[in-house]
Write a protein that binds this DNA or RNA. Structure first.
Lengths: 379, 379
DNA sequence: CTGTTAGCGCTTTCAG
DNA sequence: CTGAAAGCGCTAACAG
């Protein structure tokens, strides 16, 4: 029924091994032979059997990208950049193996969708659930994935960290390359040991960005600043909140901050509800900082609904600089993260096309972008 | 090095066949035997070898979800819904096979990330490129994917349609279940034949939604309406534009419409540029309809930058009702599409948990949501 | 440069 | 209900 490598070999009058070599391009093969094989492949419309190949070679071309929320552009942008770098066929291609030589993958007549040395980059949506995170890792382990790229903040629950550490160790041990993107290395701050299962951890300067963002607000003259934090127990949430608190502390506004902080998921609805709550606790608020842009959307909506103008009555700031940040009521002051750059770099490291950073950890800058949603407080 | 099924069998003092049967839960096994096997699995921390399993069984548990742009929430939302339904381990689980019986997949101590009969739902980002679409399909074919879910509008290029038809036929023939979500069946309007490779096509009523949206604008009194269309040659673009044109035609405003239509990608930047162009062509425009919400963002930005107020000077409408539509300057009038419902349903059909609709095609409604960005024209 | 020979780890008849 | 045996389709030494 389905065409196998042996069929191709028979038609090209060579051995199966030769066909395999042509297809993988990792071994010298005479040009004329290659031609014949390629023609047979085309004529038979042969497609490699991935599982069989993976079984024999003890590795597959699957690369998993884990994201916390696929509907959130924050992850979509990173994942897209990584995926462009890894799979799909329009990134820069390294001619595998042999000296000069034609690419083993060529469509007949310019079109066609045959895939050769391609990696299959796929994104897996954990929904922020630790169980699903582990499940996906197991599924990927089971597929003998070539690499795994884990994006976004991590859960700080010790039990989950232990489970993740164990799981990643097994993955690494089985040859899967693990790269973290936008997430600190497992035991927060651990130096990359020789046997570290994690190849590289690309982290964002969430703390610094948050700190500078609140500094910006303070410089404008704000003193009563509400903070809508992300869900508790996540690294991103904690780092951003810490940056915020440090800025306040440096300005001598340390007391009573818990009262001005409300936690919630990274959603618009959370920002909305939290703002109402903050306003109840402190009606004289002059600014609200949101854990990210999506949350800021909800903050703005709640403020407007209360008849408060932005930034005249209350200033608002977000984080991430998602595309829509420019279009919210007044353009949103926020912190830009190099999402595309991080995703692409993580993808390249996962593929071994770029060396891991020194020490395995690289922190990528965060830039405050002052826009129309922040201004000096009234009066 | 890595634990194999044989190791588990040895430890449980049964044959490999028995272990396989326990793990797959598709065959009667004595409870006591099962217990022993499961214990051995836990103790050895065994993880099934996916490729080997897929090779032997001639099918894998991979389910591919193709999207045109992973950074666009339109796709993220659909893909997320589908993925929740398919993989990840928190959806409803059907106890496979055997009478009553314990689930072969159980975490020890409540956590753990072992995966059993799970499917691995993964999303593949084509970036709207026909080559990548075909490439991913080949990659999925090569993995012997259990199902493929293709979301979003299709390219209308005859050559690409032919290539897709051929590719999907091969996939179906190899046992992969193909479901379209938010995309019309291949040869537009073809009745589902018995041998149709496509199990089901869930389409959105883009034409109807667009028609009603423009009717809304006409009812408000607008007559000079600009339209920022999506990229040419895509079903979604064409259907929405047709709906718009029909509404105009029904109102007797048929002439000169080409002049008031500008095409571009589904991006904010495109909306921005197109609006400037439309304004140049017709300074007296009273409304602009965008191909989708993201484009509408750019439209609003351009309008504001020209000193035009929304909706006082110019009304703006989008399409899709993405979450941020509520937060743009004045809340955006748009058309709601049942993204979550469609994604989830497509996922279920792909898994065979829900029957395909009659005739293989189901059209899902589109609802106009009038909001603050549209109002009667000035004067 | 090319052919031969063994498996990779699992599923699945076919017999008990 | 359980075991034995025969591959699934490909890759990877090893010889030529």
């Amino acid at each position: 029924m389905t065409v196998t490598l042996a069929d191709v070999a028979a038609r090209a009058r060579v051995s199966p091994a030769t066909v395999s070599r042509v297809l993988n391009g990792n071994y010298p093969v005479a040009a004329s032979t290659r031609e014949r094989v390629l023609r047979a492949v085309d004529e038979l419309d042969y497609v490699l059997n991935g599982p069989a190949s993976a079984l024999a070679a003890a590795t597959s071309d699957l690369v998993g990208i884990l994201v916390n929320d696929i509907a959130d552009p924050f992850f979509g942008i990173m994942a897209g950049a990584a995926q462009t770098e890894i799979g799909g066929g329009d990134g820069p291609r390294t001619a595998a193996g042999a000296p000069g030589s034609a690419d083993p993958v060529r469509g007949q007549g310019g079109r066609s969708g045959r895939a050769g040395g391609e990696k299959l980059a796929v994104v897996c949506n954990t929904g922020g659930s630790p169980e699903r995170e582990l499940t996906y890792l197991t599924l990927l382990q089971r597929q003998r994935a070539a690499a795994v790229l884990i994006t976004g903040g991590a859960l700080e629950d010790p039990e989950h960290i232990a489970a993740m550490t164990a799981k990643l160790a097994r993955l690494a041990q089985a040859g899967t390359r693990v790269v973290l993107c936008g997430r600190p290395p497992l035991p927060d701050g651990l130096p990359a040991a020789e046997n570290d299962p994690i190849l590289a951890a690309l982290t964002f300067d969430n703390r610094g960005g948050a700190r500078r963002l609140t500094d910006h607000l303070l410089a404008l003259g704000h003193r009563r600043i509400g903070y809508v934090a992300g869900p508790t127990g996540r690294t991103t949430t904690r780092h951003r909140l810490e940056g915020h608190r440090r800025a306040l502390a440096a300005a001598g506004i340390a007391s009573g901050q818990d009262r001005l902080t409300v936690h919630g998921p990274y959603t618009r609805a959370s920002g909305y509800a939290a703002t109402l709550e903050l306003l109840r606790r402190e009606p004289l608020l002059t600014a609200v900082v949101a854990a990210n842009d999506t949350v800021a959307l909800g903050v703005c909506a709640a403020l407007r609904e209360q008849g408060l103008r932005i930034p005249d009555d209350v200033s608002v700031a977000g984080f991430d600089d998602l595309p829509f940040a420019l279009d919210v009521g007044p353009a949103l002051t926020t912190v830009r993260l190099p999402l595309v750059e991080a995703g692409a770099r993580a993808g390249r490291i996962a593929l071994g096309r770029e060396p891991a950073p020194d020490g395995g950890i690289a922190t990528m800058g965060a830039t405050v972008l002052p826009r129309a949603s922040t201004a000096p407080p009234r009066g």
